[in-house]
């Protein structure tokens, strides 16, 4: 089972800040402490969802970090050796060259532990072209292109550099990228699955269904969409979002849930949503294992409603989940998620 940790300053509940009324929680050190705890508990990646590209008009959101997510990922990656980072960036807000370059650079800083949560623009044809440009730019150099041959004065082999020369409907991008190739071939690409026929370019799909019934249907849709795009099911990780409400006893969990007073109106402030499971740590771990098996899910992204619930999940639930053995330094995010090894297009022939 694969596990992601969605990072917010106070938790995903829109009034979670009332339970931890401390401006230090908004700072880098407090966010790093959350990430380090998740890393120690064996989480595979941290998700920096950034309200899925929604920019504040009048007032900031308490459920988003007060940092631009790709740069926050760089800072966090420089302070952690193992955990992966999936950072949101909207295709309507970045030129494809800039985005490809940013993530290529992040992936060097994080030594192959970076992923991009691609936020769609609303135009599927434009987004499909955008993915082609970004992928093509990431393939600008073959993995063995860089020679560093001081005696011959040859930094890289020019035969192994590929100029994109993309001229499409929406974008015109010459290339090549001016960043060394990714240690994991390409950064991991993730998407929020919305079932609406958007192109599936991703290695990871996040499912935001709010009930088990909806999640069952959405998982089936996702599996079909993957097949429809010509991808193998085994080459994609399908992860459900999960809001855990944990108590020492089932009654305590119910009381905690009642105290948090989840209301539907709060969803508007929290663009990420997920199934909510209210119970003891043991029961939640069991339910997660059952759901993964019965629905064919690869894992979950945890949306802790509060910082207390984050601590309880890390301490009490995560150790009970069946997970692969401990992960060493130097492993890429692609490796951690057991995604297929990428072969550069020039090597496929």
């Amino acid at each position: 089972m694969y596990l992601g940790y969605s990072l917010t300053p106070f938790g995903h509940h829109p009034r979670a800040w009332e339970h931890a009324r401390n401006v230090e929680k908004l700072g880098f050190d407090a966010l790093l402490a959350q990430v380090t705890a998740a890393e120690s508990a064996g989480f595979d990646f941290v998700l920096l969802a950034d309200r899925l590209g929604l920019r504040p008009a009048e007032t900031p959101s308490s459920v988003a970090t007060p940092f631009e997510p790709t740069l926050l990922a760089s800072a966090l990656a420089s302070k952690t050796p193992r955990i992966g980072f999936v950072a949101a960036a909207a295709m309507a807000q970045h030129e494809p060259y800039n985005l490809a370059r940013r993530f290529a650079s992040l992936d060097l800083i994080g030594k192959g532990r970076l992923g991009w949560l691609a936020i769609p623009s609303g135009d599927p044809a434009r987004d499909a072209e955008y993915f082609d440009v970004v992928t093509g730019l990431w393939d600008s150099y073959e993995p063995d292109a860089f020679l560093y041959d001081k005696a011959e004065g040859r930094f890289f082999d020019p035969e192994k550099m590929h100029v994109l020369n993309h001229k499409g409907v929406h974008f015109s991008v010459r290339g090549p990228l001016n960043v060394n190739p990714s240690p994991q071939g390409r950064p991991v690409v993730a998407q929020v699955f919305d079932g609406a026929g958007a192109p599936i370019a991703g290695d990871v799909l996040f499912l935001g269904a709010r009930s088990v019934e909806d999640l069952t249907a959405m998982t089936e849709d996702a599996v079909q969409a993957v097949a429809a795009c010509g991808k193998k099911r085994a080459d994609v990780r399908i992860l459900a979002n999960l809001v855990p409400v944990i108590g020492e006893t089932a009654e305590a969990a119910d009381a905690a849930s009642a105290a948090l007073a989840f209301v539907e109106a709060d969803r508007a402030e929290q663009p990420l949503s997920g199934i909510r499971i209210v119970s003891t740590a043991d029961t939640i771990a069991g339910r997660m294992t059952e759901l993964a098996a019965s629905l064919g899910l690869d894992g979950f992204t945890i949306l802790p409603p509060t910082l207390d619930m984050a601590r309880l999940f890390v301490a009490d639930v995560a150790p009970k989940l069946a997970r692969r053995g401990s992960v060493g330094e130097g492993e890429t995010l692609r490796g951690r998620l057991s995604l297929p090894h990428l072969t550069h297009p020039a090597k496929e022939a």
Partner: peptide, 24 residues
């Protein structure tokens, strides 16, 4: 491409991501 391949300046970190890591 031949000239580019002889210069280390052909590739580099994107500056903002580089400085985010240096900042902390």
């Amino acid at each position: 491409a031949d000239l580019a391949s002889q210069a280390a300046r052909s590739t580099a970190f994107e500056p903002l991501s580089l400085l985010a890591a240096i900042a902390v």
